[in-house]
Design a protein around this nucleic acid. Sequence first.
DNA 1: TTCCTGACGATTG
DNA 2: ACAATCGCCAGGA
Length: 211
Amino acid sequence: MVTLVSLDSLAPTPSTPAASSQAGKARASVVSKKPYDRPAAVTKETDAPTEHSVPSQPLSILNRPPPSFPTAASERSTYTRPEGSAGKAKVTAFQWKLYDLLVTLPLGKVSTYGQLASLLSSSPRAVGSALRHNPFAPTVPCHRIIASTLFIGGFNGEWKNGEAKNGGAFAAGGMVSEKLELLKREGVEFDGKGFLKDKGCLWDGKAVKEE
DNA sequence: TTCCTGACGATTG
DNA sequence: ACAATCGCCAGGA
């Protein structure tokens, strides 16, 4: 059993909403140059963090009973995402496929967007997109997915970019902190810059048989 | 339908 | 070693 440590230190801040918004999406109607989508520089366009009217959902996924993951087709056909969660109400076929794959990822291991994409004959971007809409966390362990660089990556909509690179301390945001904590409990640790310590924790891609 | 945006990854400068 | 581009493909508007 998992004894949940109290995560009082987690999710203390309302977090800066900056990154998730379209940072510098220069409305490229004429596509000669695409502004790359990395929210590297924090633009202060969105400066209305004061409200955050989302007390309905506790910030910590860890303090919430794990949602059940429907496996029967009949249940899936009627399933709708809870209000407030990202994405459309209906879970798409691709997403079910991805979630099915994810639940075979062994505890104590991590995978990458690229690896999942490869296994599904899709693209890493599509995988990331589907993961961010995962309504079944942490039952469907999207927290075990990191970037191919072994960087911790994102969680629950937040993405901590390579700010770790600058030698500066890697300051994970609230949600990413939870991802780190979840993984830590599973025996997967990251260094001070947000990179996976032990490459041995990488998944070999083989599903676990549940006999 | 068409267009455009992403929790990415590999290449190129 | 970095930073900026390009390609990918699934979803949403």
